[in-house]
Every structure is written in structure tokens, then in C-alpha cells.
């Protein structure tokens, strides 16, 4: 595989390399071909939207890139590791250290405070308390919630919860962040706010984001737009 590509007179690291991936769901009566030969390379520092109508295969693609599901055919390299070489438990560990997840419905743990939610993955990684506290504070400030550390998810708005989720995804310093329709449950003000924060983290921290959406306002903010339809890449535009 290629680990680096020449791009704008600069060598950029390839974080995600999807090679001719197919995914067919067999459990259903009629097998569903959700992905039919998708090849994508995502470089470090990109801000990429995966776009397509409902049922086009966005979630399937993101799940496979994130190591949550396995392809029927094809290979995925994340940070240089081919995911099919990892068994289930290794894959869980790999996700813990390499991939940040932001889910459509936030999925914060309701009984934990915002701070504890952000800290959680670092606890799984046995990061010391001092480092955890510092990193949590830094991240919560980065998402504009420096003063809401001790609030439970129920005491936060949807937009605020999703910002906590972004902070949680960034906590273990992943290679990239995957977000499946992160703004689908947000109003337009919260959507704009969340994208401002993601774009700033992308610009200032060089954090790689891959998110799916079918919201035009979100698409407009992306620096690269990959359109898929019927499980195939229709277009791939950088701007």
C-alpha cells in the first residue's frame, strides 16, 4: 500500500485507505449490496463529507472504515494497519487508540457528567488522573463548554451534548474522527456551531474528520465532498 501521496507539493500521510470494498448484507431475505467497489484515500488533516441520499451506503462505509463492521470483499488500511489482520478484540483495542467516534444520537452515558464522559476512553487507556484532567479541561474549552464540566447530558442541549461527544472522540488523540450524520438531530444554529468547532479543530490541530451528511449547509462547509450512490462513489471533489 501507499502510505504517502504527493499532494500540493507536500507529502501527506494517508490515514484511511479503502481498496475496492464491497459489502453485501446476507442476513436479509434478498441480499443487499450496500457497497459495490468503493475505493477512497483520506489524508491526514482532511475535512471530508460523505454525501448521498438515504440508503446509499454512507453508514455502511463509515462502519467499515471505523472497524465496527467487516467488508465482504476488499481491504481497509487505517494508519497503515490492515483491519482484516486484527481479530475482534484487537479491533476493539485498535478503535480505542486510533479512531474517534461521533454518533448521530450523541450516545453519551446519561449517569456520567460531561467531564466523566470525556474522560471515559482515557480511563480505558489507563491515562493518569493529572493528564486526564488537563486534557478534559482543554477539550471542553475547545468545544466551548469549559463551564459545563459537571453537568449531566440531560442538563445539556442537543448541540451541547454533541459537542461533548466531539470532545470525547478527540480525547484519546485518535488518527481521525468519524461522524455519521452528526448534525441530523440538531437545529441550524447548533449545526453551524458544531461545524465551526470541528473546522477549527481541523485547522488548528490538523485533526482529520470524516463525516456523513445529506444536509446542504453541512456539505458546503466540507473541504472535500465524496458523493456515493447505490454503494458506488459518484464523485470526489476537493476545494
Amino acid at each position: 500500500m501507499k502510505l504517502f501521496v504527493k499532494y500540493k507539493h507536500d507529502y501527506k500521510k494517508i490515514v484511511v485507505d479503502v481498496q475496492d470494498v464491497h459489502k453485501t448484507y446476507q442476513e436479509t431475505k434478498v441480499p443487499v449490496k450496500a457497497l459495490q467497489g468503493v475505493s477512497i484515500q483520506i489524508e491526514q488533516g482532511e475535512f471530508t463529507a460523505i454525501v448521498g441520499p438515504s440508503g446509499s451506503g454512507k453508514t455502511t462505509l463509515l462502519n467499515i472504515i471505523g472497524g465496527l463492521d467487516r467488508p465482504t470483499e476488499g481491504r481497509i488500511y487505517v494508519d497503515g494497519t490492515e483491519l482484516s489482520t486484527l481479530n475482534d478484540n484487537q479491533l476493539i483495542d485498535f478503535r480505542k487508540t486510533h479512531i474517534g467516534f461521533v454518533f448521530q444520537s450523541y450516545n453519551l452515558i446519561p449517569v456520567l457528567t460531561a467531564k466523566e464522559n470525556v474522560e471515559f476512553v482515557m480511563l480505558l487507556q489507563n491515562v493518569s488522573k493529572d493528564k486526564r484532567d488537563a486534557r478534559t479541561q482543554e477539550l471542553m474549552e475547545a468545544v466551548g463548554l469549559g463551564d459545563r464540566l459537571h453537568n449531566r447530558p440531560a442538563e445539556l442541549s442537543g448541540g451541547q451534548q454533541q459537542r461533548v461527544a466531539v470532545a470525547r472522540a478527540l480525547a484519546p488523540k485518535p488518527a481521525f474522527v468519524l461522524a455519521d450524520e452528526p448534525t441530523a438531530n440538531l437545529d441550524s444554529a447548533s449545526t453551524a456551531n458544531l461545524l465551526d468547532i470541528m473546522a477549527r479543530l481541523n485547522r488548528e490541530e490538523n485533526m482529520t474528520f470524516v463525516f456523513s451528511t445529506h444536509d446542504q449547509r453541512v456539505i458546503d462547509r466540507a473541504r472535500r465532498v465524496i458523493t456515493i450512490e447505490d454503494g458506488k462513489v459518484l464523485s470526489d471533489l476537493r476545494r
Partner: peptide, 16 residues
Amino acid sequence: MKELGMLMAVGMNKFK
């Protein structure tokens, strides 16, 4: 279910 799915997605292993 969702919470447990999330925990496993973000790296909590089966043993834990």
C-alpha cells in the same frame, strides 16, 4: 443496548 454498543465502539473490550 445503545450504551453498550457505544462502549464497545469506543474501545471497551468484551472482558470489561
